[in-house]
């Protein structure tokens, strides 16, 4: 039961490994960026999960003193991290576009073979 209770964290670990494996194993530059996005998203879920408090409600101020709130700070941090993630993906994709213009391909092995023949 205890393992099931950590369901969120299992998802985080699986996504993290899927993303990381994609970054390492794929030759296609776009697929590598997809892997990078999945990898980063898993960290977002890690942060959001840790903000959850048992029996906690949304962190909006309510009447009474015995109200338990979820921790909003990790969510705020992740808003920043999402922006960073979007920016990283955007810069990465624009680099891929320019690589495609310069080499005519987005496959890593073909790029390498072109540079060696220079």
């Amino acid at each position: 039961m205890r393992l099931l209770g950590l369901y969120n964290y299992w998802v985080v670990i699986v996504l993290m490994m899927v993303g990381f494996y994609t970054i390492i194993a794929r030759d296609n530059l776009v697929k590598k960026l997809i892997g990078l996005s999945i990898f980063q998203t898993s960290v977002f879920m890690l942060y959001i999960s840790m903000g959850r408090i048992h029996g906690g409600t949304a962190p909006i101020l309510m009447e009474g003193t015995d109200v338990v709130y979820s921790n909003p700070l990790p969510h705020v941090l992740i808003l920043t991290a999402i922006v960073v993630g979007v920016a990283t993906t955007a810069v990465g994709l624009s680099l891929v576009i320019r690589i495609n213009e310069a080499y005519g391909t987005v496959e890593e092995d073909e790029i390498h073979s072109q540079d060696e023949s220079l």
């Binding site: 990381f20 970054i23 530059l29 590598k32 960026l33 990078l36 990898f39 980063q40 960290v43 990283t88 810069v91 990465g92 680099l95 891929v96 320019r98 690589i99 310069a102 080499y103 790029i111 540079d115």
Partner: peptide
């Protein structure tokens, strides 16, 4: 050099992994 693009890409992937 066009290799600047591939090296920037490589740096982006490794740098983002490091930052993550």
């Amino acid at each position: 050099d066009r290799r600047a693009l591939t090296s920037a890409y490589q740096y982006l992937v490794m740098g983002s992994v490091g930052a993550t």
